[in-house]
Design a protein around this nucleic acid. Structure first.
Lengths: 130, 130
DNA sequence: CCTTGCCTTGACGTCGGCGACAAGGTTTAG
DNA sequence: CTAAACCTTGTCGCCGACGTCAAGGCAAGG
């Protein structure tokens, strides 16, 4: 399988695949003419990468999962390093959820307050404007 | 008030203030020697900017609030354009909260699953390892 | 032979809000 | 006179996951 086919089958771009390779996540072989050649296993690896990136992981976070898959596991999650990352990420997400919740609260307050005190540049609308 | 003092009083940096100016958010006067001179009103403006940026707004989002303050309002929130932005941002935050909640859910599932099926590279732990 | 459509390796652009220099002018205190 | 501590404009760096050319090689069909 060449890079174009893998990209399509994995739902990504050739550029991304080369990028992953440059960062040591994917290791294709090379045919005589220098083309990258991937086997079926790499498809799963790439899909794992995509799935994790989509969830907000960075490339560094993804590495343990790839290694885990390469070690022969059916899931990239089951290795200790992966679990560590999962825990950390979960904590990060929780923290972010808290922050966002606070922000949401503030925005809501700000908004209701703004609507209550609608535009009071000069207090000359005692009764009703116009 | 010169830029250094304003920066300190607003809890930011001179670099940031010049940046805001370059993007049309702050308009200082100039003294004879070319120094930027700010009045007290600008302090409020800058604080408004900082507060909104801290909440995740972009500079473009902040503009209406600054204009609202400049229009003489005690709060930057009360003008219609500000309200529009507030609504939009609230919606964005809500959407992001949903996404993040889903992500959290998935991570949680993945984690518990990973812990349940701890590392099964080769099924040779029928009874107990070691 | 020529075109089409793959593939290769660079290398710069993106987005945002600044940080961190560089090289210089101004004002004040000693 | 000089050093200190302000100020000025200008420019590059950052972070991350790529997008987007650019310039060229290789394979196959007409």
């Amino acid at each position: 399988m060449l890079i174009g086919e893998l990209a399509e089958r994995a739902g990504t771009s050739t550029r991304a695949l080369r990028y992953y390779e440059a960062h040591g996540l994917v290791r294709p072989e090379r045919s005589a003419n220098g083309y990258r050649v991937y086997d079926e296993a790499e498809l799963r690896v790439v899909r794992e990468i995509r799935a994790l990136l989509d969830v907000g992981f960075g490339l560094d976070d993804v590495r343990p999962f790839v290694a885990c898959l390469r070690a022969g596991n059916t899931s990239g999650d089951v290795c200790p390093d992966s679990v560590t990352v999962l825990r950390r990420k979960l904590a990060e997400v929780d923290a972010y959820l808290d922050r966002l919740g606070a922000v949401r609260q503030q925005l809501h307050t700000q908004l209701t307050h703004a609507i209550a005190h609608r535009e009071e540049p000069c207090p000359r609308k005692r009764q009703s404007a116009r």
